Computed example of a mutant assay.
Amino acid sequence: MAAYWLYGIIAVLIAAIFLAERKYPEVISNLEENILALLLAAITLVSFVQVVLRYGFNSGFGGALQLTRILFAWMILIGMSYGVKMGSHLGVDAFVRMLPKRGLRIAALFGAACTALYAIILLNADWLGIFGANGKGGAMTYWSKMFQLQLGLEDLKYPTFMVDQFGWPERVQRWVAYLILPISLALLAFRSIEAFVQIFKGERDLMIAGHEAEDLVAENKDALKEAN
């Protein structure tokens, strides 16, 4: 059974981002960039410290590898929605660019709608039963199970003083690490819907940053002259 209260928290988060962006767009963009930069810096720092401890002092942090994997996953998952927002996801647009303006717009809207639908299905597929599809589960259901079971990660542990002083479990719970799954998918759906609206209004052409055809033409514009 899904923790339905998490839907409310995610809805409030997205609403807050939406309202804040209307008034302070640069602040939200900088915040997202800083979060991604901090995650990358944390990965680098943990890896560096682990190498120094291992080869310099024959010691090390037991959960370093798992921590860097989790941080890397968080960076990728948060980066999904940020990439949609900034239009920085790579894509091949050689075909759609050959379409007339109306066809390009329809293709772009279709792509944005498919991305939003993809994120929503991964978030929770139970609603597909309305259409007779045998779909169930998703990130929300998976996270809820981890939250109810309170299972710990294999290697990553809380500091000893937290365990002693606050009575925390020895190992970091899986639901803490996996919380990014429903949040990131909800943000991806939000950014995809936002892109759909922007494309519909004519504020952007595509969700992707695909300019392979233009780059190829620019690089080879003098090729025929040189050949002759």
Results as ranks from 00 to 15, higher is better:
K145H: 13
K136D: 10
G103Q: 11
H89Q: 01
L77P: 04
F72C: 00
I28N: 10
T115R: 03
A177S: 15
S47V: 09
H89P: 01
N30C: 06
K23P: 00
V96S: 15
D155S: 04
N30F: 12
F48L: 09
A15N: 03
I35Q: 09
V163P: 08
E214G: 06
L123G: 04
G129H: 13
N34V: 08
N220M: 09
L40V: 02
S192Y: 03
A195G: 13
Y4V: 07
E214C: 02
S29D: 14
K157M: 01
T160D: 15
D164G: 05
T160S: 14
F200W: 14
F190E: 02
V27H: 13
F161C: 08
M207V: 05
I28E: 02
A218R: 12
A125N: 00
V12N: 05
A177C: 11
F57R: 12
S59W: 12
Q148A: 13
F131R: 12
C114R: 01
Y178C: 09
I70Y: 03
F200H: 12
G83Y: 11
F200R: 09
L206G: 00
V176P: 10
Y118I: 08
G87Q: 00
A37K: 12
W127L: 04
K225A: 10
A41Y: 03
L224I: 08
E21R: 13
A189H: 05
A64N: 09
A2Q: 12
W175S: 13
E226M: 10
L188E: 07
A73D: 06
G111N: 13
K201G: 01
G138E: 02
L151H: 00
I121V: 15
K225Y: 07
G167I: 09
